[in-house]
Amino acid sequence: MIINNLKLIREKKKISQSELAALLESSRQTINGIEKNKYNPSLQLALKIAYYLNTPLEDIFQWQ
């Protein structure tokens, strides 16, 4: 199971779900699903999230 700190990191950087979704060329619903652990992002999307949040991938997503 993958757990994530996306919501915590996103809020700390003062970025809304909609703003992050626009940067990622994704939907706000996708970001919401990832944050609620209802959806696991593809590797490509996970890497883009890490890039746009300027945060190491392993700080956002962790195996448990």
Rank of each mutant, 00 (worst) to 15 (best):
D59M: 10
P56L: 05
L47G: 06
K38S: 10
S18I: 11
A22P: 04
Q29N: 12
S16W: 05
N5E: 04
L23H: 11
I9D: 01
W63P: 03
I15W: 06
P56R: 09
Q44V: 11
M1R: 06
K48E: 07
L23V: 11
G33S: 15
K36P: 02
N5H: 07
I49D: 00
K14C: 12
I2M: 10
N37H: 09
L24G: 01
N37T: 04
I9P: 01
N5F: 08
S27N: 14
Q64D: 14
K12C: 12
N5R: 08
K48P: 00
L45H: 01
K36Q: 15
Q44F: 10
I9V: 11
R28V: 15
E58W: 11
Y52N: 05
E11I: 11
P56W: 06
I31W: 02
Y39N: 07
A22D: 11
R28N: 09
N32S: 14
E25S: 13
E58G: 12
Y39R: 10
E35R: 00
I60A: 01
K7P: 02
Q17F: 03
L8V: 15
K7T: 06
L45P: 00
Q62H: 06
N40Q: 14
R28W: 15
R10W: 07
I3L: 13
E11H: 08
L23M: 14
L57Q: 02
A50E: 02
I34P: 01
L57N: 02
E35G: 01
E25Y: 10
E25K: 15
Y39G: 04
Q64P: 14
Y52W: 10
Q64S: 14
I15C: 07
N5A: 07
A22I: 13
L20N: 04
L57H: 02
Y51E: 10
N4M: 09
P41Y: 01
A21P: 00
E19C: 13
K7V: 06
K36H: 13
K48N: 07
L23F: 12
G33Q: 15
K7Q: 11
L53W: 01
N37W: 10
Q17V: 13
M1F: 08
Q29T: 12
L53P: 00
L43Q: 08
L45D: 03
A22E: 12
M1T: 07
P41A: 03
Q64G: 13
E11T: 10
S16Y: 03
N32Y: 08
Q44R: 13
F61K: 01
S16F: 04
